[in-house]
Design a protein around this nucleic acid. Structure first.
Lengths: 203, 203
DNA sequence: ATAGAATCCGGACCGTGAGTCCGTTTCGAC
DNA sequence: GTCGAAACGGACTCACGGTCCGGATTCTAT
């Protein structure tokens, strides 16, 4: 309720910063060499403004990520199959991971910056939590995978981590479609296989 | 040839630094809050000495990692099955990943520090290259997996990344044996599954 | 044993980048 | 137009990785 609408200049500057940051990260070799001062300068804004608007570096990255990821989130939460809800799990799992992969291919610099994000491992990020929960829930519907769905979700998500994607697409120059095909094959392998033996293991 | 043996005090200090660093990283919450100055102080040594001996932060981490990983490397390169060479691929792949996992469980702080390692993604590290090449070579011997062995090796290694291990073992408190069992199940699933579709024969 | 050179020690010092502070400016409600 | 609140922006602080160099230590040749 106590949502006060921001002043006009504040809103304008916020947008300017987001746009500038997006451009900078997209161009940069490594996100490490984009400083906050760079972003502020590129946006035509003072550092104070930047930090006031986003809190810290992580905040900026998160906001940017959130904004760019919005369409994907939408498609996943309320879109048509195979991405949207209601799709058969065997199709939805590969679709989800492919969507995530494509996002990271299309936003390499940003994704990289976010996952490095200084000191914070990606596993503390709130958006990781969301994807993991969703993926786990879908895996839960596949009887063979239900037992270890939590770990399986982690392991599948690990296959599309930003730095891995960056290495294959960027440094090794593997073409996009090949990367997608390989991921699809891998995921299918995991999802369509019979259970190893016991199933969940004890300690 | 121009290998000159180091002076006695240099050798002693080098050991002191390694020991101190190991202890510090083992205790620390996050490797980020161990500074080089901390390590130097704990080792009873000046910063200059520390940097002279290891070049930079990454160098220290690498040296430490190398030292601790030595037994594993040995076992993999010249030990008995299932880890050593000559083991059947279907057994060796899970064994390799389990060994890696156990190492990271036993050296959480160190492994975490190494993989973060400031700006460098783990995929530029020389030791990652080694593990990837080895794993890929073994996968190559499994007909179903030979085609995408390169990616598959990356994906499997991603499942034992230090920050994921840290999260499950540390923050979530999942017991060691359960983590190992889950990884084993996952790996087996990948390795023992029939090829997804387009491939050749089946069986 | 000892002198002299090579090597190493260590902590003061530097550059850099994230994040803060506060005097000044802009907005918008009346 | 006026006034308080909100936002601006860049100088400033602080912490950390890494460098430098005068002085101490160890090696070697005699």
């Amino acid at each position: 309720m106590p949502e006060r609408k921001p002043r006009k200049d504040a809103a304008r500057n916020r947008e300017a910063v987001l746009a500038a940051a997006d451009a900078l990260f997209a161009r940069s070799e490594s996100p490490e060499d984009i400083t906050m001062a760079d972003v502020a300068a590129a946006a035509g804004v003072g550092k104070g403004t930047l930090f006031r608007a986003f809190g810290d570096r992580g905040g900026l990255l998160r906001a940017l990520h959130e904004a760019r990821l919005e369409p994907v989130r939408e498609a996943v939460e309320a879109g048509p199959p195979p991405l949207g809800p209601g799709s058969p799990p065997h199709q939805r799992v590969p679709a989800l991971l492919d969507a995530l992969l494509c996002f990271k291919l299309d936003n390499r610099g940003l994704a990289l910056a976010l996952e490095e994000s200084g000191s914070t491992s990606p596993y503390q990020a709130e958006h990781y939590e969301r994807w993991h929960r969703l993926l786990q829930a879908v895996l839960e519907q596949i009887p063979d995978l239900a037992a270890d769905s939590e770990f399986t979700a982690h392991a599948l998500l690990a296959a599309v981590r930003a730095d891995l994607v960056e290495r294959r697409a960027g440094e090794e120059g593997v073409p996009r479609e090949r990367i997608r095909a390989q991921l699809a094959a891998f995921v299918t392998r995991v999802v369509d296989s019979r259970p190893p033996r016991g199933s969940t293991a004890e300690g």
